[in-house]
């Protein structure tokens, strides 16, 4: 499986509005062949969960350039609550090293800091996206 069947939500939660990074990553993933659902900044956590549910995404990419990563654990909990354990979450932007573990503990799969290469980001998205799809409900389940 390649990038083509992967659907990813690129979003920003919290209060910061700087979206250069999220737009750039959105374009990277689109150019790699993925379907990208892109949102402007300031999404509420409930809205992100709704989006991820209704759009049936495999991946959620959250950009945080200020301190909005501090509420990502809340997002992770809300995704679990909604039964979206199979969805992988990647965080991009500026996250101080001392706060990485807190995000990993909450279930975040990867953190990409400034200067990460396009190749690394795409490769990770493909790997995690494919893994997420493996865990999704298959079409056979609907014919039971």
């Amino acid at each position: 499986m390649g990038a083509a069947s992967i659907k990813v939500l690129v979003t920003k939660i919290g209060l910061d509005g700087h979206d250069r990074g999220s737009r750039l990553v959105g374009a990277y993933l689109r150019d790699a062949g993925m379907e990208v659902v892109y949102t402007p900044p300031w999404q509420e956590i409930d809205a992100v969960v709704n989006l991820a549910t209704q759009e049936d995404v495999d991946l959620v990419g959250v950009s945080s350039l200020a301190t909005d990563h501090l509420i990502i654990p809340d997002l992770m909990a809300a995704l679990k609550e909604a039964g979206l354990e199979h969805v992988e979450v990647i965080v991009g932007g500026i996250v101080p090293e001392s706060e990485h573990q807190m995000l990993f503990d909450s279930g975040v799969a990867e953190i990409f800091g400034p200067g990460s290469s396009r190749e690394d980001i795409v490769a990770s998205a493909v790997k995690l996206g494919n893994a997420a799809q493996q865990r999704k409900l298959s079409s056979e389940e609907f014919s039971r």
């Binding site: 200020a66 301190t67 501090l70 809340d74």
Partner: peptide, 8 residues
């Protein structure tokens, strides 16, 4: 969200 207050 409280955790974000005053961080920036």
């Amino acid at each position: 969200p409280f955790p974000l207050l005053g961080t920036c």
